[in-house]
Structure formats: C-alpha cells, structure tokens
Design a protein around this nucleic acid. Structure first.
Lengths: 250, 250
DNA sequence: CAGTGGTCTAGACCACCTC
DNA sequence: AGGTGGTCTAGACCACTGA
C-alpha cells in the first residue's frame, strides 16, 4: 500500500514510531486544532483510513489508544466521539470523593470569589508561566446536599480565561471543567494530585465548619490540557469526617 | 476454523462474550491454578493459539487485556511473563508515597508485631469472612532512610498464611506482597484505598513522632487476589509532613 | 436497511532477543 | 538462524443503532 506522507521507519530505528502512533498524533493534532468539538463524532474508521492512506485496522489501533486515554469515546453502531466533560460519566473521573455511608448526593459548586492577580513564584512554576504573568484566582465551596465538604482555591492562567468572572461562575450550572471546555475551549485531559493531611485554619476551617487545628485532607492538583500543558493549579481542603477520597490501585 | 469447545454466541446474545474474552478466562484459570508461576514465561502466542484452537490474533487480544491489567508482562523478543511483585517496577504500584522534596529513598519495612486473633465484625466484613474466623494481625513501620513515615496495621485471613510470624517477617528482605506471593502463593492484583485526614493518637502518634491531635493521613486498603477475592485489609497512618500521596487522574 | 464499531482470521513482514 | 512479540494489511462476518 502507498502511504507516501507517512514515514515507516525501516532504518535501524533509534526513534522508531509505528504507523498507528503516527496516525494517533495526526488525530491528536486535529483534536487540538478544534477540527472536531467535544461531543462531536469524528469521521468513521474507514473514512480516516482512506484519509490517512492506511488500513482500517491501523486507524483502529490508534483510536483504541486514545479511547483508553479518555480522549475519545467509542459507541458501537453510532461512531467515535470526542470526549466531553458535559458527559456525566466523565465527571467522577476528577472528583474522587464519596460519602462514608449512603449514596453519592449530587454536588453543587458555590463560587465565592474570582479575581485577577499576578503569578507568584509558586503558581508560575506550577502553571509554567513567567512570574508576574496574569492569573485568575478563584475560591469556591463544594457542597453535597447541604453539607460543605470541599473548599477549593483555583489558579488559572489569565490569558486562557479572558472574561471569567464571579458572575459567569454563578450563572453556570455546569461543572467547572465543562465550563472551561465549552466557553474557553480549554479541555482538561489529565491531572496529578498530591495529598497531605493538614491542620484546619483560617477561611477553610470557617467555611467547612471545622475547628482550627482539626485534620483536613489537602489535595493539590495540577490539571493538563493537550500536549501536557498545565492549565490549572488547585488546592482543595477536604473535610473527611463524612466523606473520603477513593482510589483504585489497578 | 474449528473451535469446538468454545461457544461463539451467535444467538441474540444477552450474555454474548467474544472469543478473546473466553480465551482470557481460560488463561486466567491457568494462572489461578498455578500452571505458570509468577516470573515464569507463559507459552508463546502461537502455542496458545494452537492449544485453544483460535487464531494468534485472538490470543493476542486476550493477552493485551491481561497485560493492561498488570497480570502479564510482555517482553518483545523474549515472551510473555506472569507479573510478579519481586519485580521492582511493580512495587510502586502499591505505595503511592513520594517525598515532598528530593529523590525517593529506598524504603525499609520494620515489623513490630504479628499475632493471631478472631475476626471482629468489621474485619470479617472487609475480608469476606465469618465473624470469629481466624485472622492474623500484624503491625509494622515503614521507614524511608531513618525516618518513620507509615504505621500499618494489617489484617489477613489466617487460613491463607498458615505459618506467618514475626520471625518470618523479620528475616524477609522482600516486600510484603513479594513474600505473600512467593511463600504463600497469594498474589495481590488489585487494591482499593480510602483516604481520610485524622488526628494522631496512641501508638501511631508515638511511633511516627507526631504530637497527639496533629493531622495524619489515614489510608485504608482492601487488596484483592484473583477472582476479586479480598485477602488483605490494611489501615496505614501516613505522616505527610515530608511525604505525600501521589495520584494520577488519567 | 445502511452505516457504524467489534470480532476473527490468515498471512506477511519488522524489531528484538538469544544462541 | 530461529524464536518471540509487534505491526500492518485485507477481507469476512457479527452486533448495535437509527432511519
């Protein structure tokens, strides 16, 4: 078969990359460029095979990997779709908090503040910005039912979220990542969390109705968009008296 | 091709299971039965294809899934091997603790106690035993360098670990799961962890050199062997002043 | 019904490891 | 050289969806 534009590395191969991985990169580029929007169907496997001049099986393997990474979602009989945070299934991927007893209640995000500032050394390092670059600082409470369980401080690069404001946050009924995705075209695809136990103090203690000095779970998160670019830094204080952080080691 | 003993469900299929999944189950059974030991190579894909009377591609897909689940490890040019906890790469899968700064030191497990008891209601529930069934209770410290970082209380079903004793633990230089696997043939393949922040007290506070009331990270774990059978319950108190629990949301 | 993804096959060839 | 897993292809057929 002729696959002119794609180099199958037959050389001794210090940097050998199989065809399906090159296809994967091409599909990624299209996603990144916004050729297909979150929730949209991408072209069928056979269409992509023609387009990239490879066999359907090779396209399939590329898509398989991307589905495993939660970038695409396959639906038999319907097509392959760009993953979206508006899909409730993808919601719990980024909030690993469940009640000690009983069913998971629907959570509600209560925005408290949203302002602009210049990046200090720490935020700049976490977000890969220059110190002094414009950032957005946002604080919010997460409630399950009537109970305030998480107090979040969220740091975002100002450039990417131009008009983000407390009003916009208050008027949105979507999850944060859904809002980021639909309004600002910033799709979170991966995150790293670091957990510590800390003593409650200040605003966090007050808002979560926890005595000063009592233990809270501190969850620091860096979230990444395409190309491993960090676009959110977050410190969350979790009251773990009635909830816990669930993790599966597989 | 003739695949007499395997039913390819051509019927309307309420319980349709593709061939490769049936093959996977067969390989799983062999693993569970100990036909191939941890670290051993399993037969080559083509051998298994002949043995199960399917094409090599079908065996391949079965093995692919099992490799993704960390049950098998593929090594190009060499073969496919039964995953083992003696492989250092598999070690950090079950200890997601890294220092806030600097490189990860080698950790050292310091066994403190190991005794037998009867299961209380909670342990029985966690391990799927009858209340009153024989269990083993073990306590140990985990040190990184000279620093005690984790205090673990570990509950095991007595039946599976007949001669486990403090002496055996002290003489072993392997990781716990490596010991369980090599000495008792119990292979941990998956675990669930629930994390909370709690106030330090009693033995944990003392051993970790943390003041009473100060925050500790409590990590409760249930570990499973083949067939989703729970075979370990563990409560770990983590001192997160210099270390943190790392988790990737992917 | 046509179109999509999902399974299965058979065969060719490549990359890596060991002898 | 001969074995292993890894890639790629082409084609047949199955399962699911929606018009």
């Amino acid at each position: 078969m002729n696959r002119s534009p794609l180099s199958r590395a037959t050389a001794p191969s210090p940097t050998f990359s199989p065809l399906y991985r090159q296809i994967k990169e091409l599909i990624l580029k299209s996603l990144e460029a916004g050729e297909w929007q979150p929730g949209d169907a991408i072209p069928s496997e056979s269409e992509l095979a023609v387009r990239f001049n490879v066999s359907q099986g090779t396209v399939r393997k590329a898509i398989d990997e991307m589905a495993a990474e939660n970038l695409l979602v396959r639906r038999q009989g319907k097509g392959t779709f760009v993953a979206t945070h508006s899909d409730p299934r993808s919601f719990f991927r980024f909030l690993r908090l469940i009640p000690n007893e009983g069913e998971l209640q629907p959570s509600k995000s209560v925005p408290l503040e949203c302002g602009r500032a210049k990046a200090g050394a720490d935020v700049a390092r976490m977000l890969g910005l220059e110190p002094g670059a414009p950032i957005i600082i946002m604080r919010r409470l997460l409630k399950f039912g009537e109970e305030a369980v998480v107090f979040d401080e969220i740091y975002l690069p100002g450039e990417l979220f131009q008009d983000l404001s407390l009003d916009i946050l208050k008027q949105s009924d979507k999850s944060l990542y859904d809002l980021f995705e639909s309004r600002y075209g910033v799709r979170m695809i991966r995150a790293e969390e670091r957990l510590r136990a800390v003593a409650a103090e200040g605003v966090a203690a007050e808002l979560l109705h926890v005595e000063e000095g009592k233990p809270l779970l501190l969850v620091e998160r860096v979230a990444f968009t395409y190309g491993n670019k960090p676009v959110e830094w977050r410190r969350g204080f979790y009251d773990t008296r009635n909830f816990h952080y669930f993790n599966e080691l597989a």
